[in-house]
Each structure stands twice: as C-alpha cells, then as structure tokens.
Design a protein around this nucleic acid. Sequence first.
RNA 1: AGCGGGAUGGAGCAGCGGUAGCUCGUCGGGCUCAUAACCCGAAGGUCGGGCGUUCGAAUCGCCCUCCCGCAACCA
Length: 596
Amino acid sequence: MPDRIFVAVAWPYTNGPRHLGHVAGFGVPADIFARYHRLKGNDVLMVSGTDEHGTPNLIQADAEGLTPKEAVDKYNRIISDDLRALGLSYDCFTRTTTRNHTVVVQDVFKTLYEKGYLIKKTARGAFQAATGRTLPDRYIEGTCPICGFPSARGDQCDNCGNQLDPDQLINPRSRIDGSAPVFKETEHFYLDLPAFAEPLTRWISKQSHWRPNVRNFSLNYIANLKPRPITRDIDWGVPIPLPGWEDRPDKRMYVWFDAVIGYFSAAVEWATMIGRPEAWRDFWQDPASRHFYFMGKDNIVFHTTIWPAILLGYGNGGRIAGGRGEPLQLPYNVVSSEFLTMEGRKFSTSRHVVVYVNDFLSRYEPDALRFYLTLAGPETQDADFTWADFVRRNNDDLVATWGNLANRTLVYAFSRFGEVPRPGPLTDEDRTLIDSVEGGFASVGEHLDAARFRAALQEALHLAALVNQYLTTNEPWKTIASDRERAGTVLYVALRCVDDLKVMLTPFLPFSSQKLHEYLGHDGVIAGAPERRTVREADGSAHDVLTGDYGAWTGTWAPPKLEPGQKLREPKALFRKLDPTIVDEELRRMEDGVAT
RNA sequence: AGCGGGAUGGAGCAGCGGUAGCUCGUCGGGCUCAUAACCCGAAGGUCGGGCGUUCGAAUCGCCCUCCCGCAACCA
C-alpha cells in the first residue's frame, strides 16, 4: 500500500522574477522530496502557486503602469517559467486569482464564520488618501517622535530602533505617493486564534519529529495568541461572502489568509483537473496521508499555528468538504529553511545584490544549481552564495566525483564493448562494492525520509567515490590486454553501480540522470520537467498551471536491472566544467546590474 | 527588553558528556580509462569569549560578543 504524501510548497509572491534565494530554501528541497517519494512508489501531490493579492502587488502594478490583473498575469508567467526550468515537478502550480481559489477561500471563511471562529472588531487604521486603500505601517514614513529621525517608518524607527505606531509619527506621509495618510476607524473580521490555543498546544507538543527550532519557536508563539485580522480595506482580493460585505468594493480578505488556503484549494483544483473531483479527499481526509510543508524560516508560524488553526476550525465542514469524511489533515512536518545571502549580503533587487533564476539558467545548467543549493544551501543555517564557491563545488564535487565517474565508465565501456559487458564470476571485492552502493537505497533514503537533503546527497557522493576507488584499483584499461573477461567484469560492476547511483541522484539531478539513463541503453523516462497546461473553469475563465504526467515516469527506488549485452549509447559529458574566470564576470555583471 | 536559531582546521559542514570527523582546497606521491579528471599519503583546528558543573565538555549551566528570524497587521 503506497503512502500518500502531500507536498506543500510556499507560494511565491508575484512582485518580480524569482532569484536564487527564493528557490534555495523550499522549491528545490520540496522537489527532491516529491521526486524521491514518487520513485518509492508513493502517491504524491505537490502543490503551490503564485500569491497574487495584497498591497505590494498593487504597488508593483502601479509602478509599471499596469492594472493589478495585468501585473500578476505577467509575473505568474515569469515565475512559473523559472520554476519549470528548474524542473520543479509540481502536480499543480496554480495561482490565487482563479475562480476555484475564490470559491474555496470563501467556503473556508464562511464556515469559520458560521462556527463562531471569526470576531468582528473595529480598529484605527491608516489609509491612502487618493485610493482609500489600507496603507500598511511600513509604507508610512515620517519624523520619529523619539529621536527626530526624518525617515522613520510606521512600524519602527530605523535610526533609534524604537517600535512605533504610525499615528505617532510627526508629519506622516505615504511612501507610495507622499500624501498624508488618513487615519480612521475601520471594521474587520479577526480569526479567533485564542480559541485554538489549547488544541494547538497539545498538537504541537506531540510533534517530536519536527526540527527543534520549528517546534520550540511555535510553542513559544502560541503561549500568547491574539485574534488576527483576516480582512482589509483594499479593492484587490477575495470578496467577503457575507451579506452587507460581499458587494463592498473596499473590503477584501487579507492576502495572507487567502494565500495559506491555497494549499487546500490547489488540491481541489488538481482533483477537478484530472477528472476526479473528489480525489483531493485522498490526501486531505485520509488520516494516514502525511503533509509536508516547505518554506523559509520567516514563515514558520503561519504553517505551524495559524494555518493549522484554520484547518481545525474548518474540520470537515463547509460546502467543499460537505461535512463528509475526516477533518482536514494538519501538517505532518514543517520543513523550514534558513536564509540564503548573496556574496555576503542580503538579496536586494534595488541594489543589484541578486541573481535571478532565469538569468542563471541562461548560462548554467539546472542540475548544477540544484546540486549547489542542496550541498551548500541554507538547509540548517544561513548560507552564503558566492560565485567562487559555486564554481568550486561544480568543478570539484559534481564534475570530478560524479560526472567523471559516469563519464570514465561509460566512455571506456562504450568504446571497448559497445554494450554492457557480460561479467565472469564476481570476486568478493566486486560483491562488496555492489552491496555498498546498493545499500545507498536504504541509507540515502533514510536521510531523504527525514528531509536531510544535504546529508543524503553527501552519502550518494561518498558511494560514487567508492566506485572511483574500485576502478583505480582494478584498472580494467590494463587488464583488458591480458584478461578481457576480467576487464569486462570490472566494467560491468562499475556500470551497475553507476546505474544504481543514477537512480539515487535522480531526485537531485533529474535532467542529467535522464541523459545517463539513455546512455546506459535504457529506454523510457525516469525524470522530466513539468509542463504548462491551460485550465478552463466553470465560469469560462482560463489560466495556466504547471503539472505533469509523472505517473508515466518509470524509475523505481531500487537497483535497476542492467542486462549484460544491453547496447550502450554514445555518451557525452553530463556536466560542464566551469572556467574560474566566470567568477569575475558574474561579479561584474552583478555590479553593473545588467542581470536580466 | 524579550523569544527562537547559529558561531567547530583556509572554505563549507558533521559531532552535542569520554582525549575532534567529513568534503573541498594545500603539500608530497601514484596512475593515465576519464571533463589536468581519478587513487594514495601528509600538514593544518582544542571547537566565538569568560566563569562554572563533572573523574572528564565542542557536547551541560550561567554571563558576554557577533550574525539571522520573530517581535501582532510584511506576506
């Protein structure tokens, strides 16, 4: 019986293309995890999408002279191209401006409302004079009442560090258009988080398999829960489905609220898309189904506390779930990454401290990036991307250890035998090596099960080094003159090991593993990239998603059968060795800000 | 202020109570099938600082320094 694995990946915000920091923390790790579980034969559903509502999107649209919809269409397209090029195998990468998402979000809202988990409250808020939209604190600046700093922000003063309320500022003004903000009373719905404090505490306390920082941080956070607003004064968002509210153009759901519900709505969309509208229940209502969430450390409490509270509140209620089946599943694990910096500095678009995914992939291979981010990325602590380190790891670890092993084995076997050599009797050494390498399916798998991606990759590389040692010791290029059978046997053993390692490395290096699969003379697809498909909804609207027919991939997390006599195909180098001079080129490119 | 995480040989990481381990780099040697790749050997750290607990601490406690995130409306 296969396990059901739901892979939920953080939703990128549509205010620009993705840079390396965006994909390092969750995109690549989540994809490795999903691919591994598919190879194991488990049922995997991996979802995400672009997060398209909220103030920053409006500001971005204004800045470009576009309507909000035009702007998010543009960036949805750019972002999904970035993710597709990296080979992130989403089953459904959608967006928050779909009809389906609106329906699901409204259903969740209404259900929470009917169950009494929403509180109506009035609070004082700041508004943009010209548009009447909410002006978030950080978009207000003025003179600090404490230290007199002229450019203090509404939430805190960067000069003296004091936290502020925006109406304390002297001469407050909007950072968007410079106008004075209007302060007035405004009524909103709040999610009654304190109502969930006890069940959340009980639940989190039991999650001993979570990373300690995730668990400790969350326990600390829920000790002091307050109601959290889930609606805003803004005209760009999901309408509030209550009488007296639904027709108001100035009140919408708060973007964070609609975004987290995307994990659920995307599963519903996927089910409809594959023609089995109830299939989402297999993942969301089967108590044996396990949900893994991947995000950056700044997002932990949304996934360990706030979203679980919403799920607890919804239960199996509402129109979508229809009161049938188990309550919606809570996260099984929340895998948060740390942050990536760029040449020692924080990523900053405006200061050109940035490398965009599309720009990177125009010059380098996706597998090289996936490799680097797995081995040197911010898995357990902040990590720094440097071009020098990228070149070094690409050349000295990826190309030298694994690329060269595959290459030296294949090139020699192809030129001397043209096929997988028929082995003579295997020696103890032959057997020992094969056993060690095939043991990787257990040892590498164990690390992957625990979301220890770096350790998993290191383990696989260690096994590749064993095969390099074996070849050097057994020297088939020498023995071939005197004992062709023994040389063939050694190559057979090495080829088998390469074939095994190819499978183990597929989650990390899907593109090159597919090539290697073909060089080894196998047919079929073991790994590919997602494709773009257009989804037409009931109301006639259409949008694109990333998805794929991954069930057609043929790989299995187990030693593949490599038949003696199988014809090899002419091999080419799997990876490109990089010239160290690119380091200076890239640094210059970054400084010039010509990265596009 | 507070809360959570981090600080280990030149670089990146693991170890988390018993005299510090891995990958890369460096130095020396071997090999030549392979993308000057591969293999063998060596040098190099007392574990951010201080004080404690203990027969014994990188590993536990307290204090300090620096970095990251959170700090109720940034998603």
